[in-house]
Amino acid sequence: MDGTLFLQLLVSGLLIGGVYALISIGLTLIFGVMRIVNFAHGEFLMLSMFAAFWLFHFTGLSPYLLAPLVILLLFAYGVAIYVLVIRRTIGSPMVVQIFATVGLGLFMQNAALVLWSGDFRTIQTPASTALLRFAGIQVSQSMMIASLVAIVIALILFAFMAWTYPGKAIRATVQDRVGAQLMGVNIDRVFMMTFAIGSALVGIAGALLAPAYPIFPSVGANFGLASFVVVVLGGMGSMTGALLGGFLIGVVETFSGFFIDAALKQAVYFLVFILVLVFRPTGLLGQRGAEEIGLK
């Protein structure tokens, strides 16, 4: 095969991988801190894409300018869902932890269907069709932006965790909930902030993906599944892991789709997912705590 095609495949894989990474960062943050797997994660993404769509629809502004608004909306939504649902699931039996968010996802997806019907919509701006050309290949500008933002966010979050007080409080909570509480960390607030930030991160993803993809009520389902795979591969709770996992899954998907069969590319990454769960449940860069706390 010729070099250009190989490069194009690799770049396509990295781009969709960047999208997966961007979507997964919020999920991995929430899991890492709270030990909650948000099964409604894909629906959060759907909601933020719709938020971006409606803001665009009514203002006509560039979705990139509207991103801060989407982020704010999703942050507020995260706080609301934490208060109404998530708070009650912490420390509850496993059935509650899993099925509260499964039910939430079902509710959100169908509420979207009721409110906005099953038709798909897209955002038509010059930005959504712009292309970048280099080395004989071309890529979609909106996908490129999404991937770059994923990297930037992962780095910012990494710095936030390492050097700021709230970040330290979160890390302390992860390492020892009781100890952190004794040291005066308000666990409930840490959890609320984490969930809201995780949700706001999905807001960024939604705002950046809205110009690139058709938007409809079940759009989150497949992105959601992909983000579970990414987070498990990268290691639940690891920001850099999500980044690495996202790019890896993107490349694996694209290459297997090209060389095996496009109809089987999902099957390939589910297989990878199972193998990781079985042989290395902490993932590539998972926290050591994950296998002790997370696997229960």
């Binding site: 069969d261 999902q266 589910f270 769960l277 696997l295």
Partner: peptide
């Protein structure tokens, strides 16, 4: 899934279910 518990078992069974669905289509 011998060692997997709780959420991880649930996630793994989703993957197995999806595999069977994809293969039935394929």
């Amino acid at each position: 899934t011998l060692r997997l518990k709780g959420k991880f078992f649930a996630l793994c069974t989703i993957a197995f279910g999806m595999l069977v669905e994809i293969m039935a289509v394929y």
